[in-house]
Structure formats: C-alpha cells, structure tokens
Design a protein around this nucleic acid. Structure first.
Length: 269
DNA sequence: ATGCCTAAATAGTTTAGA
C-alpha cells in the first residue's frame, strides 16, 4: 500500500502535472493540499477517469485539502480539525481507507512572525497534537500526512541563514511539531532516510530548485502499528523540475500488508 | 529591510505563499 502526500498548489491549474504523476507513481492513497479551489470546482471527474475516488474540502482562493483513493471510496471521518469551531479554513480532512485512518493536513504557514498568523499556526499545531493524541488512544492505525509548514531540524533546510526569521524554522514551530510526534508517531521519511536532506519544497524565487536550495516541509507521521509495516519511503523530487510544477514535490511511504489482513485469493477454474 | 517568483482577485496593485 503506497500512501503519498502532495501540496499541489492549485489542483485545477496543476491538474495535468497531478495526472501525469498519478499515472507514473501509482499511489493507492493521495493526500493533497493547497487545492486553492472552491468546493464545486474540484476536478473529481478527471480524477475518477484516472481511477481515483476522492473526498475533498475546498475553499475559494486559499487552502483546501483532499484524499484520493485508487479504486476505493475514502470514508470521511472528520472534515475539520477539532478544537476551534470558529476556524473555517479548509486545512484538515480525515478518512478511512483500506483499514488505515489517513489525515490530509495543511498547517498554516505562520509568516510574518511574530504576529497573529504565527499565533494561529502554533495554536493550529497544538490542536493537531491534541487530536493526534486522541487518535492514538482510539488505537486505530493512523497516517498524518501533509504540509506541516515546519522544517523540523537544520538538516531539513539547505541553509539556516536566509530563513532564520521565517516561521518555518522557529524554535516554537519545531517544538509544536515535536509535540505531535510526542503523541506516539514516527516521521516516516526520517525513519528510512536518517541522513539525506529529502527536501519537499523549493521556492519559485532565486533559482532555488536549480540550486537544490530546498526545505523538508511535507511529512508522513505514522502510528506505531503503521510504522511497523513501513517498507520504504521517499520523495519524488523530479516532479518539482517539470514545466508548470507546484513548488512542492510528492512524498510517499510504502507499507507492507497489515498482519492478519485478508489476502485476496483468485479462484482457479 | 526588501527583493527575489507565482498566482488570484470587490484586480490594474494588493495579498498570500513559504
């Protein structure tokens, strides 16, 4: 089972790039962020033609998250992050797919900091940590996938100097990310690649892609039962270099079959 | 301290992204 997360930076504008990647990478489940599309404008028909059924929560101009499943219906369990009824930004969607609870999340960027946007980011991540703890206590297999807008350590950024004041690398942002992990989750990319940078984002500005001046902002956090099934993980970085690309590249995990899972047996005739 | 890119919108400059 292959689960991927991809900040598409406008799912309508980026649809050809998305479809090409789906055909090549063949993920079973995809978490999308930054749809930047109102709910009715989501390209559900084009994705269905590609073999994916979808659940999504759109929003005009900004934000927006989706979960795609190949040949299966994602069963939505939550369409908002608990903890603030007044938060109407489309940043969280959660669905059950093939025995795994998958969350597609888009944490606030938080710039400029300090300020109200940074406070919203930290509060949002605190809500995520609380909810991540709730899911652990429910004992279900969980994958929290998305754009956390946090480079967790200095290894996750090409140079700390030019980003020193950025919300993505602040100690408070990193502590907020660690509090999610502390609920009992593992960082899948780092588990497989402890040393390699594994950037997932390269800014459009200043030839950051050509210079490989990236950041690792997109993460897949796994509950222990899912982590035990982790066979491989990676970043499809070449996607970032294509014409009309998003500024993010997809990150993915490959899971072994769940222990005790029913195997499909083809009857011989 | 700001520009640097990219994109959308009570658009023709402003706001947001990260």
């Amino acid at each position: 089972m292959k689960i991927a997360t991809f900040n598409v930076n406008n799912v309508v504008k980026r649809l050809p790039n998305l479809l090409a990647w789906l055909a090549e990478a063949e993920p079973d489940v995809v978490c999308l962020q930054e749809l930047k599309t109102a709910q009715p404008a989501f390209p559900a028909a084009a994705l269905a033609a590609a073999g994916y059924r979808a659940a999504w929560r759109g929003q005009k101009t900004w934000n927006g998250v989706a979960i795609l499943a190949r040949g299966a219906e994602p069963v939505v369990t939550r369409a908002a992050l608990p903890g603030d009824p007044d938060d109407d930004q489309s940043r969280y969607l959660e669905a059950a797919v093939d025995g795994v609870l998958v969350a597609s999340l888009y944490a606030p960027n938080g710039n400029p900091q300090p300020g109200p946007k940074f406070a919203y980011k930290l509060a949002w991540l605190a809500r995520l940590a609380r909810h991540a703890g709730t899911l652990r206590r429910e004992g279900v297999p969980v994958v929290l996938a998305g754009d956390y807008n946090v480079a967790p350590t200095d290894r996750d950024i090409y140079s700390t100097r030019s980003w020193a004041k950025d919300a993505l690398v602040q100690p408070e942002s990193r502590a907020a990310f660690r509090r999610v992990l502390a609920q009992g989750y593992g960082d899948a990319i780092r588990a497989v690649h402890p040393q390699a940078p594994c950037y997932t984002f390269w800014h459009y500005m200043r030839n950051r892609w050509e210079r490989d001046a990236g950041l690792r902002l997109d993460h897949l956090l796994l509950s222990p039962d899912v982590a035990a099934r982790l066979r491989d993980a990676g970043v499809d970085r070449e996607i970032r270099g294509r014409p009309g690309a998003s500024d993010h590249a997809p990150a993915w995990i490959l899971l072994d079959r769940a222990p005790g899972a029913r195997t499909r047996v083809k009857r011989r005739r």
